[in-house]
Design a protein around this nucleic acid. Structure first.
Lengths: 238, 238
DNA sequence: CGAGTGTATGTTGTCAACAACTTTCAGTTG
DNA sequence: CAACTGAAAGTTGTTGACAACATACACTCG
């Protein structure tokens, strides 16, 4: 469904490399839910749909596999992962590990000049989106906030690991609905900012932990009623 | 210097894939210091030396780049990274993030049956190695211990991220000498085990933090006197 | 003599074809 | 009729050759 129009819009000179472009477009397609979990990705299909050879496609798939956004069964194919409840919990375990470290690093480090500004701005924007009832925007800004948080830690490795985990978060998040958006969401982010400004590490971490625990509960409750078989594949019977 | 004997020892049937084998062997060659930091890796050279085509080599390089064990400058080549002092600190920031989360997960989780056994065993072995004066073994067991620690968390994502970071640790560690091996090293690991057994999260995390701070200081002091230019490349002038 | 330029070389990026593997399904046999 | 065997289809894994890019060096021109 991604269109067979090819990879670029007329100019025949790729700015960086085909592999990078395919990677980004594939990642976008995966996290926005347009590729169903459990489905197999055919290399030739992707290649033709993107208008490139199998080489760059293979490279892009490799990157996304290493990121955890795709799983590869050798000699069989690559599949969009289906996240179990356990996976959802694990994603948030990883997020708590990374973001806690980021907060600690920010508070103890010499950073924090313009970083707080952008964080505050995001909280403000989130408040506006919430007031407008635009839950999709609220969700996006939420993720933006946490990315900015880790960015502010000025730790390349924390950042690198977080890009993966935040992608997985998007993967198991889908789109945020009114039900998912708890009304204390904006408040929690504001509290985190505040605690960090005051250098209150414990308070910031406590709020973060609570924030994540709530998110996990919400996500699991959402998935619980619908899906009967949370296990393996989503193969469709013809 | 890796020998041009080819990739396998006679049997012509690769058990998994060439790319995986090349990845592992390359990773080993990088972390054991046999490839000098700053040096460029030529795809054709590696391909011929491994006795395979450029495809699998390229795939292996991609994986290691994504892991952070190699850096890629587009259209120029891939290089063995040279770790600055800042990088060393950052590696241990990442390790603290991951291992702290692992400890928390272990203590709060339902795991911990046979996990403690293997951890204790490693501490014992480390003590023996230290008594024997085998500092290389002490270093290896040290890393083994921390891998086992994260394994015990039963968090796939923590594990996945940790494999990368522990490789980077090996990269900036080189070989452990008598100077690096502080005599309280075994004791610290034993304390971590003990605190975890008692469920004393704060104590375990405190010991871990101290453990890492000491390690960073030791590593930076080791590099400080020798290298005059800690910055960029190690290009050799002909 | 210095600055700019054109070429030469070696690299990575990309491609299309080949080979190996896994799965599926029809056919056969007990 | 069930279970096994064989080929067939479709997939990934691998290869060697081609093209584009970046750098280094010799050359020319001021």
């Amino acid at each position: 469904m991604t269109g067979a129009d090819g990879l670029m819009s007329g100019v025949m000179i790729p700015r960086s490399t085909f592999a990078s472009m395919v990677t980004e477009r594939l990642r976008a397609n995966i996290v926005d839910g347009s590729m169903q979990p459990g489905s197999q990705l055919s290399e030739v299909e992707l290649a033709t749909s993107f208008g490139v050879s199998r080489g760059p496609v293979r490279e892009a798939l490799q990157r996304l596999i290493q990121e955890g956004l795709l799983i590869s069964e050798p000699h069989r194919g690559v599949f969009v992962p289906v996240l179990t409840d356990e996976d959802v919990r694990d994603v948030y375990v990883a997020r708590e590990a990374l973001e806690s470290a980021a907060i600690r690093s920010i508070i103890s480090g010499a950073t924090t000049a313009a970083a707080y500004e952008s964080l505050d701005l995001l909280v403000t924007r989130m408040g506006q989106a919430e007031a407008a009832g635009d839950w999709a925007a609220v969700g996006n800004i939420d993720l933006e906030f946490h990315v900015a948080l880790v960015d502010a830690s000025s730790s390349p490795r924390l950042k690198r690991m977080f890009t993966t985990v935040i992608s997985e978060t998007r993967l198991c998040l889908g789109v945020l609905t009114a039900d998912d958006a708890r009304d204390d969401l904006v408040e929690e982010h504001r509290l985190i900012c505040e605690a960090m400004r005051e250098g209150d590490t414990d308070q910031a971490l406590a709020v973060l932990t609570r924030h994540f625990d709530d998110a996990v509960v919400t996500l699991l409750n959402r998935h619980a009623p619908g899906a009967a078989a949370p296990g393996v594949g989503v193969e469709e019977m013809s």
